[in-house]
Design a binder for these strands. Sequence first.
DNA 1: GCCAACGTTGGC
DNA 2: GCCAACGTTGGC
Length: 323
Amino acid sequence: MAPAKRKVNTAADATSTAATKRQKKVVEPTASSSRPSRTSLAVAAAPRSTRSSISGKSTPVKPAKSTIKGSANETANKSATKTATKVKAIEGRKRGRPAKTTTVEEEAAVPGRTSNLLIDVPLREKPAVKAEAEEEAEANNEGPAYFLMKAEPESRIEKGKDVKFSIDDLKAASEPEGWDGVRNPVARNNMRLMMKGDMAFFYHSNCKVPGIVGTMEIVQEHSVDETAFDPKHPYFDEKSDREKPKWCLVHVKFVQKFPGMIKLKELQKYAKNGGVLENLQVLKQSRLSVSKVAKKEWDFIMGLVDAEDVAAMSAAHQPQMTV
DNA sequence: GCCAACGTTGGC
DNA sequence: GCCAACGTTGGC
């Protein structure tokens, strides 16, 4: 479901009109040792591996990603009856495991701005301490917010179409790319937070060496992801109603490709006990294809790039041992 | 290819 | 609305 963005090369899109891309891997991201620790007792009691061995393994072939599923129902918003401080995670549901609850603050936790998240969601009540909240929002309302978006740089065919989308594809695009295909509610909500001028890391996922390969800028805020309505599209979602669009995309433009990749492995090193990146969302929720990055995390990672750059240059200038 | 994580489903 | 089952993601 929450695919990282992937680019789908349709005939129409072959020349890279902004139309389709893919995304993927939203979703989803990892803990220090790569997998978030789980807290559910129910799961502990019945380890997934056990269950899956009983039910049989999934197909060896990678299933179509992200297309069909989708969240329970954004329509369930109506049932959001919660109180002011706790709001059902964005869409709420009619059935199923209860959605995690998050505070307004958490949901709006993109540093530096108030949330514009809920376009199609009921308004939340304002915090009691409204004045303070507003002041803080204003005080923070400067500078861009930062994100991380995943795409698959290697070819993978889904519904007959190649879903690959790399930083080089973005770089080659002549117009802003619509980051479509996000089919995970959390990732989608992160896209709704994006504002023009915000920045995002471009992350290569589902490949040999995953990691951050460059940056891009958000040039157009969220709009409806039309690929959800096309039955032939890899990202078709039969449950998405045109009257009530469930999925959105944002448009991005290439900013830079790093001289080298900041590997996932390296990011994880800095996430260990108390490290600067210990709260990097993509490391905590490895499957999130669109995640938030705090300014401090962004700056730190950009610092790694510079350091690497310098190291690469000095290596290049090292006297060569001639053979 | 394996399998932890975790979102969703749907019976109760 | 709880929760067991199950499907998918994506690093390894």
